[in-house]
Design a protein around this nucleic acid. Structure first.
Length: 359
DNA sequence: TGCATTTGACCGGG
DNA sequence: CCCGGTCAAATGCA
């Protein structure tokens, strides 16, 4: 990585640029089609914004000359950051701190890698960006947190037992902005059920219904269809970006990492983007009274994915293949533990596979 | 009937 | 002792 630019990053940038071009084209089409111009426009703007940010980040970290170490952990997630404003910096510091703590923590006690993500519920789309993290989560607890208005929900990978996957996440609604959720991921997925494998559960409606009830008839699946595609691709892009970008990321691990990483990574850009756009604030999509537990567990975040999985599958077909290949190829449960204790030494080789698909 | 969620109890760190 | 995190029995749902 001479000059701080690895070939992966260059490739990524190219891809991002390409993606942006496509999004722009779509934008034109949408505006002419004029079916639901507003929503489409909004989302497209976000997409574009996200791309821009991603590029910004890449450049930034690239210029830092250390896309892998400190910059890595803090950089990507938080950085968008400065560009975004508000939340950004906080998140950045937070994330950075968390990543730094990682090592210490692991010494003190067996703690899995952990990173935080913020997600804002998107009022128009009825889905909050980031989270169909492609994993199947099972709620195992809920706690009232001191000083927090809303309880915190605890989830763990559904395949914890069957596949010895110890990934967990905590979801908590923000006090300040009820439409924002803080999601803290812990541990890396070692299961082979990432993304594509997380088949749309036979009954996503179950959760969806709950959600829809809480929200309003947010049945914009039609217009969202396309957007979902865009979004999904965007997500992957960011994932990949993160992969390369955060080589040192604790949870980034050779092949398997891809599927596992998306959870956190996808959200980074998207959440950042959410905060960026002045749009998503029409209505809070969630009634503050909504029991977080239900909403979150069932929310489009995860498996539900507002039925977007169909779309995702289509649009991500390539990526899906890639992911499945990677995830299924190496599911290394045991490695994960070790790796969590010694995060930094693992990254060097991993992003290649994924990138190869992109280029 | 099997799986997911709920929720109070329990545990361990600070 | 307080608080965050997890467990596990009870309950709900398809």
């Amino acid at each position: 990585m001479e000059n701080g630019w690895s070939w992966e990053q260059k490739t990524l940038i190219n891809e991002l640029i390409h993606g942006m071009e496509l999004a722009k084209q779509l934008r034109v089409q949408f505006s002419t089609a004029s079916s639901s111009p507003e929503t489409a426009e909004i989302l497209l703007q976000r997409i574009l914004a996200s791309y821009e940010k991603t590029l910004l980040i890449l450049r930034w970290s690239g210029s830092m000359g250390q896309p892998h170490s400190a910059g890595v952990s803090g950089g990507p997630p938080g950085s968008p950051i400065s560009a975004n404003g508000s939340l950004a910096s906080d998140e950045f510091d937070k994330g950075l701190k968390e990543h730094q703590d990682l090592n210490d923590v692991s010494k003190k006690r067996k703690v899995l890698p952990r990173w935080t993500d913020q997600v804002r519920v998107n009022s128009e789309t009825g889905l909050e960006g980031p989270h169909d993290d492609g994993f199947s989560w099972r709620k195992y607890g809920q706690k009232d947190i001191l000083g927090a208005k809303h309880p915190r929900s605890y989830y763990r990978c559904t395949f914890r037992i069957s596949q010895n996957c110890w990934a967990t996440k905590q979801v908590q609604r923000s006090d300040e902005d009820p439409s924002v959720f803080e999601i803290t991921y812990r541990g890396r997925h070692t299961c082979s059920h990432a993304n594509n494998l997380v088949p749309v559960p036979p009954s996503p409606e179950k959760q969806e219904e709950k959600q829809n009830n809480h929200t309003h008839d947010n049945q914009q699946e039609q217009p969202l269809d396309i957007l979902a595609n865009i979004r999904s691709s965007l997500r992957i892009q960011t994932e990949d970006f993160d992969n390369t970008e955060m080589g040192a990321y604790p949870f980034s691990f050779p092949s398997t990492s891809i599927g596992c990483m998306n959870s956190a990574n996808s959200s980074f850009s998207l959440s950042a983007l959410e905060h960026n756009t002045p749009l998503g604030s029409s209505k809070p999509f969630l009634s503050p009274a909504t029991p977080e537990s239900n909403y979150l567990s069932g929310c489009p975040f995860q498996k539900t994915n507002f039925g977007g999985l169909h779309n995702v599958h289509r649009s991500e077909s390539d990526l899906t293949e890639m992911i499945s290949a990677n995830t299924s190829a190496t599911c290394s449960p045991t490695l994960d533990l070790d790796f969590s204790l010694d995060p930094v030494e693992i990254d060097p080789n991993f992003p290649f596979d994924s990138l190869a698909f992109f280029s």
